[in-house]
Design a protein around this nucleic acid. Sequence first.
DNA 1: CGCATTATTGAAGGAGTTCAACCTTGGTGG
DNA 2: CCACCAAGGTTGAACTCCTTCAATAATGCG
Lengths: 231, 231
Amino acid sequence: MKIDRSVVRSLSLFDRMSDADLDRLLTHATPRRVPQGDAVFEQGQTATNFFLLLHGRLKVTQVTEDGQQIIVRVVHPGDLFGFAKALQRSDYPGTATAATESLALSWPTDLWPQFVEQNPLLAVSTMQTIGQRLEEAHTRIREMSTQEVERRVAHAVLRLSHQAGRKEKGGIRIDFPISRQDIAEMTGTTLHTVSRILSAWEQKGLVEGGRQKLIICDLPGLAALADGGRD
Amino acid sequence: MKIDRSVVRSLSLFDRMSDADLDRLLTHATPRRVPQGDAVFEQGQTATNFFLLLHGRLKVTQVTEDGQQIIVRVVHPGDLFGFAKALQRSDYPGTATAATESLALSWPTDLWPQFVEQNPLLAVSTMQTIGQRLEEAHTRIREMSTQEVERRVAHAVLRLSHQAGRKEKGGIRIDFPISRQDIAEMTGTTLHTVSRILSAWEQKGLVEGGRQKLIICDLPGLAALADGGRD
DNA sequence: CGCATTATTGAAGGAGTTCAACCTTGGTGG
DNA sequence: CCACCAAGGTTGAACTCCTTCAATAATGCG
């Protein structure tokens, strides 16, 4: 079950790691294919593994006691995910579902300490990753506290276009199936409101919608909307 | 400028650290008194130091480009704060203001690597701290996405009572000056709404309000409110 | 082809904001 | 020592953004 170095060499996470170190890491990794719609792990399960996404997209969701769902984040290729143990948790705080057919590498959590010890750089970049994630969370809190829905949706869409945008004729396409419901769960609103907003945007030529599809046609226009009504 | 071990010995952060290690740490620390209303550091400043709060309370705030303010978190005695560098940031992401007269220990950020190297335990517990903070942020996002204002305020007040509650005749008092505006900035609403909610609660005997003052009289009652309307 | 999933759109209603006026409290300085 | 003022708090009324309810339409998969 040996994975070739070249598969991961390009990822920024392993930038400065020696071939030997990298190989040692990979000998313990198990590849795991995840069909669209399947979960890699579920909220509350004991955290037995941590993962690295190679290909595809995952949505990490949380469900409240009363059944409401929110999307905590989207996992993109090259991202580590499910490293609950690194944060001293024994279970996964959310569910990771494949939005598209995905491929991940998996390590047993027990290996994390070695993993880090052998690669101080990895520890640092993990810290950095978590730090970024904390900042993202605060940004989201700030937005939800101070901005009305349309701007929040604009920000969310812009973020998606950075992280998952693929140039296409006519605009930038979000490179995985995403529904109005998903966007609603990312911005703290309802699919109805999102639908209305996107329809309005489509009228103005800012985006082009469709079933589980979203293409940004006028990025600067959207950015202006997101930056808000400061005249 | 030698600080006595006993001052910090009781903090969970230093639980398992040897006296010698602790002393080594403290030789590099500078105590810093912060009068009420003063800032320890401000949003955007270069992160030159990281801190440990010994006494008092701090509010960490962020201001949006358009001047809106939110409270990111409250710092309690025993908490590390301002460790931007550990997250690979060069500047402080928020402003830390003393809600009461406070006392903090300060270290130059340059020392962080040594700090951690000499105390692997510290690295672990920092990770843990950041992990917790990330979870708190997600909790807040979840609440803001799914709950109406009254429940959010209830949760915020309960959290405060855990972290800063002091038993007093007639209830649990939040042990530092906190205004309706503050609570509004913690829950993403306006001081008007908070005022109305607290007034209503006071009618029902759940809390006792006052100028920059809050006493929880009926904790279970509040908890029921926070847990929400599931019948 | 039929059905489930996703999306659109109208109408009604409500929770919370905004605007505005007024009240309370405690600190300061004359 | 008390008058005054600023900061914090209360409360009403109007309004609005968004949700909720509801019904219908499009899309694509089995």
